[in-house]
Amino acid sequence: MKVCTDSCVFGAYVKVAEAQRILDIGTGTGLLSLMAAQRSKGLVEAVEINPAAQVQALQNFKISKWSDQLKLHSVSLQEFAKYNQQQYDVILSNPPFFLSSLKSTDEAKNAARHTEALFFQEILRFAQQHLTENGKLYLLLPPAEAAIFARLAKAHDLHLAEVLQIFTYHGGKCIRHIQSYTFNAVTAPDVRDFFIREEDKATYTSQFAELLRDYYLIF
């Protein structure tokens, strides 16, 4: 499973320094959990249903410097919700999504969006029950899917507080949104732009370099 640049931006962006307990939903190879553990002294728990990803995440956790902070739950989110008794200061997820624009028929698009909505509802139900009063839920999604999630969140008393719009380069297209949600009322979300590369499409921006300095060896 590839380590994507947008996932690295997400892992470096989420505010975890003061969190005592963090949950990574759909950890994959454990990238986001490992990045969170580097900036927090709290416990980082991860949920993953895919067997191959579970093996990789567990291996990555064990050989890291932060293994004592990391815990993997090899179950679905639905199963985890049945026995979990903990509350989390930060819940983060880069959930599986379907790029509906790649589907060839309206029927396929509708099916994909229906599947997304079902899983999004599971995340929201879990967050509503297990996020601390002043905690934050973070999502990384393409713009279209982010809009769907924002609409669904309203029914779960979660308010969109921040949006970081990630662009491939200056003058390029917006590829992802990082969203943060809170139980606290928000008049309007704080929306900002983030550019990975300059207009030459080769040079990293100072914005990117500053955020990823602690993770990328090239800076």
Results as ranks from 00 to 15, higher is better:
residue 150 A to H: 00
residue 162 E to I: 10
residue 140 L to K: 00
residue 176 R to W: 04
residue 177 H to K: 14
residue 144 A to S: 15
residue 154 K to T: 13
residue 143 P to V: 12
residue 168 T to E: 11
residue 138 Y to I: 02
residue 173 K to A: 08
residue 136 K to A: 09
residue 135 G to H: 04
residue 155 A to P: 00
residue 142 P to S: 15
residue 145 E to I: 04
residue 170 H to T: 05
residue 136 K to W: 07
residue 164 L to W: 04
residue 173 K to P: 02
residue 149 F to E: 02
residue 178 I to H: 04
residue 128 Q to S: 12
residue 153 A to N: 07
residue 170 H to A: 10
residue 145 E to R: 00
residue 151 R to L: 10
residue 174 C to H: 05
residue 139 L to R: 01
residue 141 L to C: 07
residue 143 P to C: 10
residue 155 A to S: 15
residue 156 H to N: 08
residue 167 F to M: 05
residue 168 T to G: 15
residue 155 A to Q: 13
residue 138 Y to P: 06
residue 148 I to Q: 08
residue 170 H to F: 06
residue 131 L to F: 12
residue 127 A to S: 15
residue 177 H to R: 05
residue 160 L to V: 14
residue 177 H to P: 05
residue 165 Q to C: 12
residue 153 A to F: 04
residue 173 K to T: 10
residue 130 H to Y: 02
residue 144 A to H: 08
residue 132 T to N: 13
residue 131 L to N: 03
residue 156 H to G: 01
residue 169 Y to R: 01
residue 162 E to R: 13
residue 177 H to Q: 12
residue 168 T to F: 04
residue 171 G to K: 05
residue 165 Q to P: 03
residue 171 G to Y: 03
residue 161 A to Y: 09
residue 139 L to V: 05
residue 142 P to I: 10
residue 171 G to I: 10
residue 176 R to N: 10
residue 158 L to V: 07
residue 178 I to V: 14
residue 130 H to F: 12
residue 155 A to N: 15
residue 138 Y to H: 05
residue 170 H to S: 03
residue 169 Y to F: 15
residue 168 T to I: 11
residue 133 E to Y: 13
residue 168 T to N: 15
residue 143 P to K: 01
residue 147 A to Y: 01
residue 140 L to A: 06
residue 169 Y to N: 08
residue 151 R to Q: 13
residue 177 H to C: 10
residue 150 A to K: 06
residue 165 Q to N: 13
residue 128 Q to F: 10
residue 158 L to D: 04
residue 161 A to E: 15
residue 174 C to F: 07
residue 140 L to N: 02
residue 167 F to G: 05
residue 142 P to N: 13
residue 162 E to Y: 12
residue 158 L to G: 09
residue 160 L to H: 14
residue 137 L to F: 14
residue 144 A to V: 12
residue 133 E to W: 07
residue 168 T to R: 09
residue 165 Q to F: 00
residue 165 Q to K: 15
residue 176 R to T: 04
residue 158 L to I: 02
residue 165 Q to G: 00
residue 163 V to I: 14
residue 145 E to C: 01
residue 162 E to A: 07
residue 176 R to Q: 08
residue 173 K to S: 09
residue 140 L to V: 13
residue 150 A to S: 15
residue 160 L to G: 08
residue 135 G to M: 05
residue 176 R to C: 00
residue 143 P to L: 05
residue 162 E to F: 06
residue 138 Y to Q: 00
residue 170 H to W: 03
residue 153 A to H: 06
residue 158 L to M: 11
residue 133 E to P: 03
residue 137 L to T: 06
residue 130 H to R: 14
residue 140 L to Y: 00
residue 160 L to F: 08
residue 142 P to H: 03
residue 142 P to T: 15
residue 164 L to C: 12
residue 166 I to Y: 00
residue 136 K to C: 06
residue 135 G to E: 03
